[in-house]
């Protein structure tokens, strides 16, 4: 078992009469990390506190079922695993408190629209698709724009998974190249830019192969 799960090991092996003390030791060691997760998920202090309490309750529930599901197989440290569990529990807490609101759904729709617009501007720049964003297009132009978006979606779908993820992180989540480089373990932001540039060319070729240039403004 990884060295950073010492308190977990004590907790899971503790006999019933020692369980409370072992739990307290576990919380004492990991509370700061769990609070950090709650604070990241909820910017409001009270909400973060409630989420933190919820996370603790859920970790302890059902005879520590969640904590017992950690497998010390070397794929990740316990602290990393715990962060992911806590982050997921924070999502559960949010859903339990607010439900899947219309706001969330509309936010997703907005993000999707934003993604398509950004990617469209990025990939379509050199194939003269800017006219598609012109105000008050006619019906024919709108249909053409829709076709282009579908072609673009298909082109993105045909990329390798790692490249699709890179595209989504940049254009849908609007993360910086520096942040993406850190997330994907790339050496530098320049590597992100170079990869995006190569992907842009690929998408451009794919769009042209699908006859996208037909909708270019005359």
């Amino acid at each position: 078992m990884p060295v950073d799960s010492r308190e977990l090991e004590h907790l899971l092996k503790a006999p019933p009469e020692e369980r409370e003390r072992a739990w307290q030791a576990f919380v004492g060691v990991h509370s700061r990390l769990l609070l950090h997760v709650a604070r990241t998920a909820f910017h409001d202090r009270d909400e973060a506190m409630d989420a933190y309490a919820f996370v603790l309750d859920e970790l302890r529930a059902k005879e520590l079922t969640r904590l017992r599901s950690f497998t010390p197989d070397g794929k990740s440290k316990f602290s990393t695993w715990l962060v992911v569990v806590a982050r997921r529990l924070c999502s559960d807490f949010r859903r339990r408190r607010y439900g899947r609101s219309r706001e969330v759904l509309s936010e997703r729709a907005r993000e999707e629209q934003l993604f398509r617009r950004r990617l469209h501007a990025f990939a379509g720049e050199d194939v003269e698709l800017a006219g598609l964003a012109a105000p008050a297009p006619g019906v024919e132009e709108q249909l053409s724009a829709s076709e282009v978006r579908d072609a673009l979606a298909r082109a993105v779908d045909s990329l390798m998974p790692a490249d699709r993820l890179l595209i989504k992180l940049r254009f849908e989540d609007d993360l910086s190249a520096q942040r993406i480089a850190t997330l994907l373990h790339l050496p530098s932001p320049f590597h992100v830019y170079r990869r995006l540039e190569a992907l842009t060319k690929t998408l451009r070729r794919s769009l042209e192969a699908r006859g996208v240039e037909r909708v270019s403004p005359e």
Binding site: V37, T80, R164, E172, L183
Partner: peptide, 19 residues
Amino acid sequence: LAECAECRREFVDASTVVG
């Protein structure tokens, strides 16, 4: 992750906390 915004957000947030 490329497909699922929810998992992607979880991955980004958890990575941020860990890193």
